[in-house]
Each structure stands twice: as structure tokens, then as C-alpha cells.
Design a protein around this nucleic acid. Sequence first.
DNA 1: TTAATATTGATAGTATTACTATTACATTTG
DNA 2: CAAATGTAATAGTAATACTATCAATATTAA
Lengths: 226, 226
Amino acid sequence: MDQLLANIKIQVNDKIYVKDPETTTLGRKIIKHSLIMMDEIGFDNFTFKKLGELIGSNESSIYRYFENKHKLLVYLSSWYWSWIEYKMVFATANIVAPLDQLIKALELVTEKIEDDLNTPYINEALLNKIIIAEFTKTFLTKEVDEENKEGFFLIYKRVINRMVEMVIQIDPEYPYPKSLISSIVEGALHQHFLKDHFKTITDCNESTSPTNYYTHLIQRVLSPKI
Amino acid sequence: MDQLLANIKIQVNDKIYVKDPETTTLGRKIIKHSLIMMDEIGFDNFTFKKLGELIGSNESSIYRYFENKHKLLVYLSSWYWSWIEYKMVFATANIVAPLDQLIKALELVTEKIEDDLNTPYINEALLNKIIIAEFTKTFLTKEVDEENKEGFFLIYKRVINRMVEMVIQIDPEYPYPKSLISSIVEGALHQHFLKDHFKTITDCNESTSPTNYYTHLIQRVLSPKI
DNA sequence: TTAATATTGATAGTATTACTATTACATTTG
DNA sequence: CAAATGTAATAGTAATACTATCAATATTAA
């Protein structure tokens, strides 16, 4: 699986960028350092001018890759969910029992991520931190419906629907499979945030992870058919 | 309860504002019209200049009430959760069984809100829409830890902890009461958003509400002691 | 009632952001 | 080697996010 990833290009909707950043040195530099910078100062304080200074490139050169910083964040998010989807497909392919599949998939979307060394210019650990802190900002905008029509959130929704299928297999009678999964995927990011900033309203900490909480939850919520 | 609310002032941490907007005509105008405007154009496009034009006041006059638009959003959120807390305390006061209490509280935090006519310059239906679309932006910032220390999110956390207490009463053995409630409160807002924008990843719609989903969920997750 | 004080409005000004446009030069590719 | 593509530098615009000052008006306290 690790080696496979080295040869496969993560697919991102080409309407998100002006020019594919994966194809040039500057493009890859933009991605790599935008991760570092967004993690450090946050999306709100991040600007193309600052990024340009950091990588020793002109602001206008960055605009040749991304229309604006919002699109860059959408790109990073798409990349992230595409990478998660890829891992999910492989990690669950050999698992027969749907419940075990779901538990595995759950682990992938709720665990803290470590850097995947197969992607040299993307630090997944950083990207995961950015997703936790910034992902909701990609869709909490007035333009969400247009961008959704353009397919900006397709991969994210596909990841969720893959897990929904597992739920339906496990317990066809369960009435809210979509809401269950969408609230888990979003909720896991939120629990990671709480653990770092609002410790008094979460049980997650060093020893208990969002993965533990949600694994326990689905086992109580779903009634596997025998 | 309705009459009571008319006489009680919703308390908001006074570090959030420069000058209490509830005490003057202009202040109340700022609140009332910021709701209308934020609902219409969204928080990101909202500026004090535009608000000033709308209410026929100078931009600088608005800065006398709020340092910036972020603080205004924090104010509106605090007000919202304070109002929810108030309703929760009254609505659950006469209920004996903790499970019934929790179901009632759950209803309050997950249902779609209608305007409460006791607060003439706050339209709660609008405020609820703004909370759904913008609330996470109040804490997904680099300043969250400082602002948390200042007590900006106290009421929100108190609402959650009230419900956590109910969960502990219902099922003292349940290992994740805080994560359960924090993920429900946040998740309910998210489900409302999905129902309006990403219909393919939620079961919520005209006939099924987030309240239905979460009421069903807690009954499966919690095992009431007998 | 008058004087002091608080509130608001108007104007102006600054630094930063979020871009767009143009030109020139460098590098890669066919 | 010519064309296409990529990159850098400069300049410029409109909007944003404020801050400061001062005059006009409303409120309140002596």
C-alpha cells in the first residue's frame, strides 16, 4: 500500500486551480509551504503576499496557480479527502465483514494522521491539523451552492457515502445512516479541536481518542443482522 | 416562561464588547441589523462600513460598540447560547426523569428556532440561521486560547455541561458523556447546514429533523439504569 | 436652568489586503 | 532553434479594517 501510493496521483477537480500545482517546482513549493504557513499563522492570517515572501517568489506567481486563498484551501481539502479515500479503499478491500470494514474506515477518518513519506511535498500530519482547524471554512460560505455544483466537495461526499454503504450493509434497518456518518466525520475533527482547546467539553485526551469514542458509539447504535 | 423572558436580561461577558449595545438605541440597532445583514450576505462579506450605511450611522460609531466584526459575532453567539440556556433551565425544571430532561434539552439545542417576540430587537430565527452558518468561526481562530481564557465561550460550555450532567444521571457507566454532548450540539448545527446545502450526505429533510436523529441516537447509546 | 458629560456623526487618514495588468526574461519542449 | 511555457518585478486599484479628531447634539447632575 505504501509503495502503491508513491505511484498514484491524488486526483483533484481541475476547476479548483488555475494551473495544476503538482506539475511544477513552484507549484509544489506553494503547496508545501502553504501547509507550513497556514499551520503556523492560521488560514485567516495567511496571505499570498506572505507566502510569496516565504518561498522567495512573487505574489503574482502564486495567483497563476490559485485564484485566491479560499481556492487553495479547497484544493488542500480535496487532496486530503482524496488521500483518505485512497487509503480507505485499500485498507478495507480485504475485509469481508462490513462491521470490521466500518471500524477500519472509522479509524482512518478519526485518527490523528502522521506524515506519509510517499508524498514528498505534502506533510500529511500538518495537513490533518489544517483540516481540523480550517476545513469547515471551505463550505461555510455564501458561494457553497455554486461550488458544490462545480464539484468542489465531491470527494468528501464520496468518502462519506462509502462509509454509509457499510452502515447499510451492517444494519439495513438503521434509519439515519447518512446523518450518522456525516456527523461522525465532522465530529471527529471537532473532537480533535476540543481536545486541544476546550478540554472541559470532551472526553478525548492523550489516552482516549476520538476513534475510541466513535468506535464505541457505532457499536451501540447499530444492530448487526446475524 | 414567555413573560419571564421579557423581564430578564440575557447576560453576555462584558469583555466581548466595548460598550454594551443593549443600553442604547444605536446599540440595539446595530444588533438588529447585523443579524439581518449577516444572514443576507454572510459573515465573510459583512463589514462595519456596510452596516453603517444600512442603519444610517457612521462606521466609527459602530466601532464604539465592538472592536471588530469577530467580536460582534462572538457577542451574538454568546447571546444565543445564553438564551438557549435560559430556555433549557426553565423547560427542564419540572421534569423529574433525567432521560426526559435530556430529550427536552436535546430538542432545544437541535430544533429549528422561531422568533421569540419577547426580544424586540433580536430575531431568534435569523440568529439561529447565523449560528448554523457562522458559529464555528468564532473559535476556529488563532486567538481561541486567549479568548477562551477571557471567558468568551463560557456560556456555550455551560450549556453543554448541563446536558452532560443529565447523561451522567441517566447512565453513570457511559464512558464518553462530554464527547457525546459536544458532538451532538455541534453536529445538530452541521446537520441543519447539510439539509440546506449537501442533501446527499444527510437523512434530515422536511419531514425528518436533526432532533429526530439525535433523540433516536441517545436512546440507543445510553442504557438507563433501572 | 445651566454646566458638565456622554453620545453620535462627519471627515480624514493609514496600513494592509486582495487582487489585476503588463512587461521582460528564463527555461523547457517539439 | 523557435515556440510555448514559466517566473519575476513593478505598478496600480478598490476595498478593508481600522484610528484620530472635532463639532453637534442629547442627557444628566448640581
